[in-house]
Computed example of a mutant assay.
Amino acid sequence: MPRDLEPRLLRAFLAVAAELHFTRAAARLYVAQQALSRDIRRLERELGSELFVRTTRQVRLTADGERLLPYARRVLDAHEALAAAFTDTERPLLVDVGAPVGTAYRVLGEARRAAPGMEFVARYLSGLTGAAGEIAAGRLDVSFGRIAGIDAALRSGLDHQPVRCERMAVLLGDGHRLAALDEVPLDALAGETLYTGAGNAATAEWTDLAARLFAGRRIRMAAPFPEIAGPEEFVRVVRKHGWSVLASTEFLAVPGMVVRPLAAPVPLSPVSLVWRRGLSHPGLGVLKSAAAGLAVAEGWLDLPKDCWLPDEDRAAMARNT
């Protein structure tokens, strides 16, 4: 085996390992599929090992491919660290957490504790669809949310790390017929109308997830409503309209309302850490490490037996990162 391997070859390997599909991996790297295939063949020659089993139906890692994964990640992490050491690291990292509660907010807090000398500036945008546009425009560095729900053209310029499969819940008035339950079976919501962010283009990925969940269950979405900006305005509008709300178990406190987990099956909302592909900033590494640590410590990526998660989301959350 040669002493030196080009980082480009390892990036090609990790992209194919993540996607398990050469066309998608090539799009992710902005290269032609033929060029990507050449790089993989060259890497296999230089290592003297076959890394992938390729058939007309699927691509999968060989045992040697699985063995290479942690080494390839460490090498590229070192290259990123080297680049970051000679990059402007004085500027703050702009991080969208959506709300001052929940998964993203907890990851941000852990990152701030881990690197107190680094500046992470929080933003509170309402959804990943809107945040992804801000990331692409260079006005935001990092966000969190459902990566599989983002338009493919926009997603091609992003990278992500799975963080958590949040249990979905419903926010109910404390006098609602279901509010006394410890958890609410999905079938019990038949005939109910829930606010799901319809009408807010910035949260399209959440509204799409809701539509998939409600399909065939006779649960209705509330009529489209303009974007509701900020926690205080959200509380005001929800209470004024008397809406029940599709939510996650960690949610804003709304006076006079209760959060109840959904069940039978347990619906999950996938959350990834999302950033602009090619972003070089030491704060990103701190966030990735904080997210990974919390995910392991709290079992955030463990799926319950009786759960609901669309196939494309399941694939995105199972990817090799």
Score class of each variant (00 low, 15 high):
residue 178 L to A: 06
residue 183 E to D: 13
residue 195 Y to F: 15
residue 181 L to A: 14
residue 225 F to C: 06
residue 208 D to Q: 14
residue 195 Y to Q: 12
residue 200 N to Y: 01
residue 218 R to D: 15
residue 205 E to T: 12
residue 201 A to I: 05
residue 210 A to L: 11
residue 180 A to H: 14
residue 216 G to N: 08
residue 248 S to R: 10
residue 175 G to A: 11
residue 187 D to L: 13
residue 218 R to P: 06
residue 248 S to F: 05
residue 231 P to Y: 04
residue 183 E to A: 15
residue 212 R to Y: 04
residue 173 G to R: 07
residue 226 P to C: 01
residue 249 T to C: 13
residue 192 E to R: 09
residue 248 S to P: 02
residue 175 G to K: 06
residue 187 D to Q: 09
residue 179 A to M: 00
residue 196 T to E: 01
residue 218 R to S: 15
residue 200 N to S: 14
residue 205 E to N: 12
residue 246 L to Q: 07
residue 178 L to E: 05
residue 233 E to W: 09
residue 222 A to C: 03
residue 219 I to F: 00
residue 214 F to P: 00
residue 184 V to F: 02
residue 234 F to P: 01
residue 211 A to Y: 02
residue 194 L to C: 03
residue 237 V to S: 09
residue 213 L to A: 06
residue 241 H to M: 13
residue 231 P to M: 00
residue 194 L to Q: 05
residue 229 A to F: 10
residue 192 E to H: 12
residue 192 E to G: 14
residue 228 I to V: 10
residue 202 A to R: 12
residue 174 D to Y: 02
residue 245 V to M: 05
residue 207 T to R: 00
residue 190 A to S: 13
residue 238 V to S: 10
residue 184 V to E: 02
residue 175 G to N: 08
residue 198 A to Q: 11
residue 213 L to G: 07
residue 179 A to E: 05
residue 199 G to C: 08
residue 207 T to E: 06
residue 174 D to C: 04
residue 212 R to W: 07
residue 233 E to F: 13
residue 219 I to W: 03
residue 243 W to M: 11
residue 215 A to L: 08
residue 212 R to Q: 14
residue 244 S to T: 11
residue 211 A to H: 12
residue 197 G to S: 02
residue 240 K to C: 12
residue 173 G to I: 00
residue 233 E to C: 15
residue 220 R to V: 03
residue 214 F to V: 04
residue 240 K to E: 14
residue 222 A to E: 05
residue 182 D to K: 10
residue 244 S to A: 15
residue 222 A to G: 03
residue 176 H to S: 09
residue 234 F to L: 01
residue 249 T to G: 09
residue 214 F to T: 06
residue 194 L to V: 02
residue 234 F to K: 06
residue 234 F to A: 03
residue 186 L to Y: 05
residue 243 W to G: 02
residue 190 A to Y: 04
residue 232 E to A: 15
residue 185 P to I: 10
residue 200 N to P: 06
residue 244 S to V: 06
residue 226 P to K: 01
residue 235 V to T: 15
residue 242 G to L: 13
residue 199 G to I: 05
residue 248 S to Q: 10
residue 196 T to K: 03
residue 175 G to S: 12
residue 227 E to F: 00
residue 222 A to F: 01
residue 222 A to R: 02
residue 178 L to T: 03
residue 188 A to N: 02
residue 204 A to W: 07
residue 230 G to T: 05
residue 191 G to Q: 01
residue 187 D to I: 09
residue 209 L to M: 14
residue 202 A to D: 14
residue 185 P to C: 02
residue 217 R to A: 00
residue 208 D to R: 12
residue 185 P to S: 01
residue 239 R to W: 06
residue 201 A to N: 00
residue 193 T to R: 11
residue 200 N to C: 10
residue 174 D to M: 04
residue 232 E to R: 12
residue 181 L to W: 10
residue 197 G to N: 05
residue 212 R to M: 08
residue 189 L to K: 08
residue 192 E to L: 09
residue 189 L to I: 12
residue 180 A to Y: 07
residue 236 R to P: 01
residue 195 Y to E: 12
residue 226 P to W: 01
residue 224 P to A: 00
residue 225 F to M: 11
residue 243 W to R: 11
residue 238 V to H: 11
residue 185 P to T: 08
residue 179 A to V: 06
residue 202 A to F: 07
residue 217 R to F: 00
residue 206 W to I: 13
residue 208 D to V: 10
residue 186 L to W: 02
residue 185 P to Q: 00
residue 195 Y to H: 15
residue 246 L to G: 08
residue 249 T to H: 11
residue 249 T to A: 08
